[in-house]
Amino acid sequence: MTKLAEWLLSLSFLGGVWVTLTFGLLGVALPRACWEVVWPLPIYLLVVFGCYSLATVGYRVATFNDCEEAARELQAQIQEARGDLTRRGLRF
């Protein structure tokens, strides 16, 4: 099964449950208090997922390592390599 199919399957299952509960199909009648929570649930979940995404990406950008040391090491090695290769007769 492709990822697209997995998503469609899960979404249609969840959507089906939501429609059933919200519109009281199949003789399922929720108490008023529960129903008030259930019907706007997709919007809530979307907002929560959006916040989670923003927070995750923001945190990861902020903690993305800057490899200053690696860049310095590479520069030093480049000088060493140039010297050594020139000694061995390489024409750059």
């Binding site: 990406v57 950008v61 993305f64 390592n65 800057d66 490899c67 200053e68 690696a70 860049a71």
Partner: peptide, 11 residues
């Protein structure tokens, strides 16, 4: 990690 990337590139 990376070196030489600005904020936009990281984002």
């Amino acid at each position: 990690g990376v070196y030489g990337w600005d904020l936009k590139r990281k984002l």
